[in-house]
């Protein structure tokens, strides 16, 4: 039986001096951050800063080039394949588009982790599935196929599936993308309630500033592979940093430039005229 003792009692995920490069493109250079246990932590940042990559590093799907990723006190690099699988059973992840298995109905999708990892009797599985579906408000949709669900409903079913094994960490990868305001509100409510009711840690990656700031306890703003700002949502709103102001305010130009790098505009225009 493995012992999951944490060094820092209040930190469930620690990232120390993380470097990660893909095809000689440096995504993270010396990233340091700590995710507190029992809280809703949000990661925000412009597109392409590697927010999803960070999630993959936390879940062990990708290995860092250098640096440490500790989950519940254990360095992921020291774990074998089985070890990582065992760790993942204590995590739940909600993918951007739900990622439900298309050949199974809603019930079987939510029951999937139970069927694969446990030998619970059918009646118990049924009770658990219905309970989790009730928590996300979709108990009535239990016999539908994923193709018959709207985007928001699919995501809620995926959420029920993510919590079916009572994980300690819940990870949300861009949960608000493409949702109407009502569905967005539903998901927001669920994130907060599940976090508090189940006593878990929630990690949310998103760039919907207003939405996520309404439920998060701590926010990290990533840009250029580093943490450029962190704190509570209130601290971020009142921050004077330029990059924070641009991101929070949705400004078109600022530290994140409007123009993709290019040569001098007039030179290029004139060059084309000359070629005629």
């Amino acid at each position: 039986m493995l012992c999951w003792e944490t060094v820092n009692e209040s930190a469930i995920v620690e990232i120390r001096d993380l470097h990660y490069a893909v095809n000689s493109r440096l995504i993270f250079a010396g990233l340091d951050l700590t995710i507190a246990r029992g809280r809703v932590t949000a990661f925000m940042g412009p597109s392409g800063t590697g927010k999803t990559t960070l999630l993959r590093l936390i879940t062990g799907q990708t290995a860092p080039t250098s640096g440490k990723v500790l989950v519940a006190g254990t360095d992921l690099a020291t774990l074998s394949r089985d070890g990582i699988y065992a760790l993942r059973q204590r995590m739940g992840m909600l993918f951007q588009n739900g990622a439900l298995l298309t050949d199974l109905d809603v019930f079987e999708n939510v029951a999937f982790p139970l069927r694969e990892h446990t030998r619970l009797p059918e009646r118990l599985i049924r009770d658990l599935v219905l309970t989790k579906l009730q928590a996300v408000g979709l108990r009535g949709a239990v016999l539908l196929m994923p193709g018959e669900l709207s985007g928001g409903m699919a995501r809620r079913v995926a959420l029920a599936r993510a919590i079916i094994m009572d994980p300690e960490i819940l990870i949300y990868d861009e949960p608000f993308v493409g949702l109407d305001p009502i569905s967005m509100g539903v998901i927001l409510r669920l994130i907060r309630r599940l976090n508090d009711a189940l006593g878990i840690t929630s990690i949310v990656v998103s760039h919907d500033v207003q939405e996520i700031c309404s439920v998060a306890d701590a926010v990290f703003l990533l840009s250029g592979g580093k943490v450029v700002a962190q704190g509570t949502p209130q601290q971020l709103q009142s921050s004077q940093s330029e990059i924070v102001r641009q991101f929070v305010g949705g400004l078109a130009d600022g530290p994140v430039p409007f123009h993709y790098p290019a040569g001098d505009y007039y030179t290029e225009l004139l060059a084309r005229d000359e070629a005629c």
Binding site: T59, Q61, R88, M93, A99, L100, F112, P113, E116, H117
Partner: peptide, 17 residues
């Protein structure tokens, strides 16, 4: 398609090979 819709990644995340 399962690869493109993250179904395979989801399985990996649920600790299913």
């Amino acid at each position: 398609l399962m690869r493109a819709t993250d179904q395979l990644s989801a399985m990996e995340m649920m600790a299913v090979d």
